[in-house]
């Protein structure tokens, strides 16, 4: 078997994403520590993050409803593999907790980091609360992570 051929290539490429109108409003809300979901007029499901269309009913969504920054931990994991944080360009140290959080007022879950990385202290069903950054930019990481409530 021959050795792999190594060809050193360096390519830079960036994309200019247009945020859907719903996501733009969601992000604007974050800048004011406000979280909103979109409710389907057909089945009533409240989508967070907001989606342009209900996947169940295929109806466009336009009914905004308020959501709390507290909720229930629906799933959790602790990751032990360091990752390159695309927002900072620096390695994110491991281990770190990651969870699916269903905020009060929403029917879907939000994927986010958890303050807690000790598996012994994490459990599905725990109450969690958003920990906001001091400086808000209108992005999902305006929430630093979710912390488990006592």
């Amino acid at each position: 078997m021959s050795a792999p051929v190594h060809v050193a290539l360096e390519m830079d490429q960036s994309w200019r994403y247009a945020a859907p109108a719903a996501m733009a409003r969601f992000c604007a809300g974050l800048k004011e520590r406000r979280i909103e979901a979109l409710r389907c007029g057909g089945c009533g499901r409240r989508y967070l993050p907001p989606r342009p269309v209900c996947g169940n009913c295929h109806l466009p969504l336009a009914d905004w409803v308020p959501v709390a920054d507290e909720g229930r931990l629906e799933a959790w994991t602790v990751v032990h593999v360091p990752i390159l944080d695309p927002r900072t360009g620096r390695m994110r140290e491991a281990p770190y907790g990651m969870g699916l959080v269903r905020l009060d007022g929403a029917d879907t879950t939000l994927n986010h980091f958890l303050a807690q990385s000790d598996p012994a202290r994490l459990a599905i069903g725990q109450r969690v609360r958003a920990v906001w950054r001091e400086q808000l930019a209108g992005a999902i990481d305006d929430i630093r992570h979710f912390e488990v409530l006592a």
Binding site: Y17, A18, A19, P20, A21, M23, P52, V53, P60
Partner: peptide, 11 residues
Amino acid sequence: RDPRAIPEMVL
């Protein structure tokens, strides 16, 4: 250049 997001164009 469509200012909308891809899902909005597709919809």
